[in-house]
């Protein structure tokens, strides 16, 4: 589904990603771990097409199609979803209105009519129940005055609504207490399927107890330095990132 080859990316001429190779197949969940500043969030932003990052070398392809020339919204239309580490506030725009616009824009890009209102309402009801979201919450302005946990839960709600092929969860666990973490993780697990894939970016192993990955990759200094199965995450938890750093030096 997603194929990243020798990806180098910079921001303001500072190289952050220094040759990433990653293959994600449908149905898989990949975890990307690593210390602060290793390039995890940059990788997520580059896949989503954020302009401030410049791809210097290498390629990203989704289902065989090179993404380089595609604008962020076009990537979204193709089924890429990013759950933001720091979701932004849009005052005066309700969650519902935002989702309605997002879904209809994506449908328009695929040559479809707007989603009928009753279908939209049904979808909203279904997904909000799944994520234990109070529907009153959905008429509030997007992320304005939301707690950290509400913001993250709202991101996963949007993911559920958009039904992406590839979802990237950037530090979705940060700012969540254990109950919220459980709800969010349950939601994500329900969204796992044979047709879609998920990349979970996290600093801690904690989230991976709930969302069990098929593969774990360790990112350090812009490169994937170690890949393995879920046991790798436990090993990291035990030994800390210094272990990886030392190993790379050796």
């Amino acid at each position: 589904m997603l194929e990243i080859k020798n990806l180098h990316a910079s921001v303001e001429d500072k190289e952050i990603l220094k040759g990433i190779n990653l293959q994600v197949n449908p149905g898989e969940v990949h975890a990307i771990m690593g210390p602060n500043g290793s390039g995890k969030s940059t990788l997520a932003s580059v896949i989503a097409g954020k302009e401030e990052f410049e791809v210097k070398k290498g390629s990203i392809a989704l289902e065989g199609e090179d993404l380089e020339e595609l604008a962020p919204e076009e990537r979204a239309h193709k089924g890429i979803f990013l759950s933001f580490q720091y979701p932004v506030e849009i005052p005066g725009v309700s969650v519902t209105n935002f989702m309605r616009t997002a879904i209809n824009e994506s449908r328009k890009a695929r040559g479809l009519e707007d989603m009928p209102a009753n279908q939209m309402l049904k979808l909203i009801r279904e997904k909000s129940e799944m994520l234990e979201i109070d529907r009153k919450f959905l008429s509030r302005s997007l992320n304005e005055g939301f707690s950290g946990g509400e913001k993250k839960r709202n991101e996963i709600f949007q993911m559920a609504m958009m039904e992406p092929k590839l979802a990237i969860l950037d530090e979705t666990d940060s700012g969540l207490d254990i109950d919220a973490l459980r709800i969010v993780a349950n939601g994500v697990n329900k969204l796992r399927g044979k047709e879609n894939a998920i990349i979970v970016i996290t600093h801690y192993q904690r989230l991976l107890e709930y969302i069990v990955p098929d593969f774990v990759h360790v990112l350090h200094d812009g490169k994937i330095v170690k890949s393995g199965t879920k046991e790798l995450a436990l090993e990291l938890e035990d030994k800390g990132y210094d272990w990886i750093k030392q190993e790379t030096v050796v």
Partner: peptide, 20 residues
Amino acid sequence: FYCNQRGIDTEKAIALIVNG
């Protein structure tokens, strides 16, 4: 960018933000 990532192009995003 947040709007773009949800499939909303820049013009539509501005309209949305301004309307809000």
